[in-house]
């Protein structure tokens, strides 16, 4: 089989995650994963299906409903030489485990004068739009990015879903890998080989010249739709998929800003204190003279995620809102 044939294979986002995990577990006997319903049941989103059958209960671990201990299990195992993947079913439940994530995992290395190494990956699922309401829909990446010591990735497509997972697991730092629940079924090309998508490197998913849309996760798909819409009006959007939100590939953003002169940051998380604020700030520090307009931000309003579909539709950013945001920035 030629490489091209291999690469032409398509896989869903969730299946790409599963394949990446399987392959790295085959490659590295120190990798195991643990979480609620991830063993025998294969995960509530099906992301871990079949792995317990292959790797058994010691490497595909069903845990009690104990987020704090799940993350702690990963920290303890990582600092003593294993390479754990621990799953927090919904990103909202990270709050239950926040001490282990923020005070322990993120800081051990630093507090110990560099002596500890934590090759730990925390996987989780974020995102609204399923009427799952306020405790099962949040996008909390900004909170994690604020904590020195953590790396945070948010894949937007199946190719990155696999490659970023592999990169996270191989990384010697605590990484948080955030799936979006509504991307799990999204299909795309995924190479069969084990490969990495490097952490901290953004991807220009659509080159353009009039405005730069900086985004990540599911909003990449929505931004691409918005870009198509605006292309009809002669607006040529460049869409940057950050892929990693900590560390931030700010060079990719400022390079693009210098080219297009306009930046709109798009995320599903609430606007206030979101990644958009950080990016806007860094862009104006580094490329102020190149900007034709203030950096635009599209994000969720400052409310919890509502249940009712009508309210949620108003809440979650989508292609229309992004189009509107871009128009505003461009003064259209």
């Amino acid at each position: 089989m030629t490489v091209t044939e291999k690469e032409a294979r398509t896989l869903a986002y969730g299946a790409a995650f599963n394949e990446g995990l399987r392959q790295i577990m085959e490659e590295d006997p120190d990798v195991f994963f643990a979480g609620e319903d991830v063993g025998k049941a294969g995960g509530v989103f099906g992301s871990f299906v079949g792995l317990n059958e292959t790797f058994g209960d010691l490497r595909a671990v069903d845990t009690p409903i104990s987020e704090q201990a799940i993350v702690g299990l990963g920290i303890g195992a990582a600092v003593t030489g294993l390479r754990p993947v621990v799953d927090v079913m919904f990103m909202d439940f990270m709050f239950v485990a926040m001490d282990q994530i923020a005070n322990q995992a993120a800081k051990l290395k630093y507090m110990f004068g560099g002596k500890a190494t934590l090759p730990l990956t925390i996987t989780t699922s974020a995102g609204a739009g399923l009427s799952a309401a306020a405790q099962h829909s949040q996008s909390l990446e900004a909170m994690l990015c604020h904590i020195p010591g953590l790396k945070v990735v948010m894949p937007s497509n199946p190719y990155d879903a696999k490659g970023l997972l592999v990169a996270c697991i191989r990384d010697n730092n605590p990484t948080v890998y955030v799936k979006n629940k509504r991307l799990l079924g999204l299909k795309g090309e995924v190479p069969e080989d084990l490969y990495e998508v490097p952490i901290g490197v953004a991807n220009i998913v659509r080159p353009g010249s009039s405005v730069t849309v900086v985004t990540y996760g599911r909003m990449v798909q929505e931004s691409l739709k918005a870009a198509e819409e605006l292309a009809g009006e002669g607006v040529d959007c460049e869409v940057i998929d950050l892929r990693t939100v900590q560390p931030l590939d700010i060079d990719a953003v400022t390079t693009s800003a210098r080219k297009t002169g306009n930046i709109v940051v798009v995320h599903e998380a609430v606007r206030f204190g979101g990644l958009g604020a950080e990016i806007a700030s860094q862009v104006q520090e580094q490329a102020f003279d190149y900007l034709d307009a203030p950096v635009g931000r599209v994000g969720a309003p400052f409310t919890p995620v509502p249940f009712s579909p009508t309210l949620e539709a108003e809440y979650v950013p989508n292609a229309d809102r992004i189009t509107e945001g871009i128009r505003e920035t461009l003064g259209m």
């Binding site: 439940f93 009427s131 799952a132 309401a133 306020a134 405790q135 919890p304 509502p306 249940f307 309210l311």
Partner: peptide, 21 residues
């Protein structure tokens, strides 16, 4: 309509809420 099934409550009846966590 803000809470749905998982957050249903009636504080007047002393029902302090279903819970998603």
């Amino acid at each position: 309509g803000k809470g749905g099934s998982m957050h249903i409550c009636d504080l007047d009846l002393g029902m302090l809420g279903a819970n998603g966590i």
